[in-house]
C-alpha cells in the first residue's frame, strides 16, 4: 500500500524532485512540501477557488489535483507571478483598483484572472464575471475585482505567465 511515487515538478521556474504519497494533493505539496503558503485552502471541495494555481499555464483548483497528476508539469503560484520587484500587471491592477478586502480569496482570484486573460485578451465585463465563476469572495468584493481585471486586460503587452 501507498508506495511513494517520484515526481518532478517545476514550480515558479525551479525544478524539484520529490517522493510523494499518491494521495498528496497538489495544494498540500505546494504549501507543505514547498513551503509556498500563498496558495490558500478555502472550501476544500472544488468550489471556492482559493487554491487556484496555474498548471501548464491553465488555472486549476489545486485541492482537486493530485501532486502525482501534475508530475512533469509546470506550476505557477502567486509567489511566482512578479518579476523581481515588478508586480504582474494583474497584481498591479488589483492593488490599483483595490480588488480585495480581507485578501483570503485574492491569490486564487489573481491566478484565475491571469488564466482567464490568456484565453480572453479583450473581454467584456460580462465575460469577466463569468470567467471568475470558479472563485468566491466572501467579502463580496466582486465589483472592484472585476474592475481590476478589466483594467489589467487593457494594460499594454501584459505578460501572461
Amino acid at each position: 500500500m501507498m508506495t511513494a511515487v517520484r515526481i518532478t515538478l517545476t514550480v515558479n521556474g525551479t525544478r524539484h524532485d520529490d517522493d510523494v504519497e499518491p494521495r498528496l494533493l497538489l495544494v498540500h505539496y505546494l504549501r507543505e512540501t514547498r513551503g509556498l503558503t500563498g496558495t490558500n485552502v478555502g472550501c476544500d471541495t472544488t468550489s471556492c477557488g482559493a487554491c487556484t494555481v496555474l498548471l501548464d499555464g491553465e488555472s486549476v483548483k489545486s485541492c482537486t489535483v493530485l501532486a502525482v497528476q501534475a508530475d512533469g508539469g509546470e506550476v505557477t503560484t502567486i509567489e511566482g507571478l512578479a518579476s523581481g520587484d515588478a508586480m504582474h500587471p494583474v497584481q498591479e491592477a488589483f492593488r490599483e483598483h483595490h480588488g480585495l478586502q480581507c485578501g483570503y480569496c485574492t491569490p486564487g482570484m489573481v491566478m484565475a484572472a491571469v488564466s482567464f486573460l490568456a484565453e480572453h485578451p479583450d473581454p467584456s465585463e460580462d465575460e469577466v464575471r463569468h470567467g471568475l465563476e470558479g472563485n468566491l469572495c466572501r467579502c463580496t468584493g466582486y465589483h472592484n475585482i472585476v474592475k481590476a481585471v478589466m483594467a489589467a486586460a487593457k494594460t499594454p503587452a501584459a505578460p501572461r505567465a
Binding site: T46, G49, V60, T64, A112, S115, F116, E119, G134, N135
Partner: peptide, 9 residues
C-alpha cells in the same frame, strides 16, 4: 460545466 478551472481538468 462547473467553472473554468474544472473545465481545464
Amino acid at each position: 460545466v462547473g467553472d473554468p478551472q474544472v473545465r481545464h481538468r
